[in-house]
């Protein structure tokens, strides 16, 4: 069964078996929508209480997600007017850059647990890149 969501605020999937905390899932999904261009700079996003009711997640959790997204420059909240995607044409690109950085940091962390040297880690990255190019 396929469901087409014409409302861009619906379709959030929040799972309690996902290891990420709920606020992080909300943040990641909003950021992803901006990164792929489903939400564009200046677009209005639902109010905190509206989104909380829509996806059945506590108000305080959505509040935290919005606050952090605001600090990261992804959204802007205008007093009494609601919340909007930040007016920044480069936003989608910069979110993708940030996502890459965070994956790289995670890789560095795991490599440290394996006691890999810098060269070994770089070689593994090259390998992974070769593999992915061969597949496509």
């Amino acid at each position: 069964m396929y469901t087409v969501n014409t409302d861009k605020h619906s379709g959030f999937v929040i799972s309690q078996t996902d290891p990420r905390p709920l606020y992080q899932q909300v943040k990641d999904q909003l950021r992803h929508r901006v990164a792929v261009g489903e939400l564009k700079p200046g677009d209005e996003i639902p109010s905190i209480r509206q989104l909380a009711a829509d996806i059945r997640v506590s108000v305080i959790t959505i509040k935290r997600a919005y606050l952090e997204l605001e600090l990261e420059g992804v959204i802007q909240t205008r007093q009494g007017r609601g919340s909007f995607v930040a007016d920044n044409a480069q936003l989608g690109e910069s979110i993708k850059e940030q996502e890459l950085d965070s994956h790289l940091r995670a890789a560095v962390h795991t490599a440290a647990l394996l006691y890999l040297t810098e060269e070994q880690l770089i070689e593994r990255l090259r390998e992974a890149r070769r593999e992915s190019q061969e597949r496509s």
Binding site: R49, Q50, A52, A53, R56, V57, V59
Partner: peptide, 12 residues
């Protein structure tokens, strides 16, 4: 029920 409860607190 949980959905209904969340609808209630749309009103602060």
């Amino acid at each position: 029920l949980l959905s209904e409860l969340m609808q209630i607190v749309r009103d602060d």
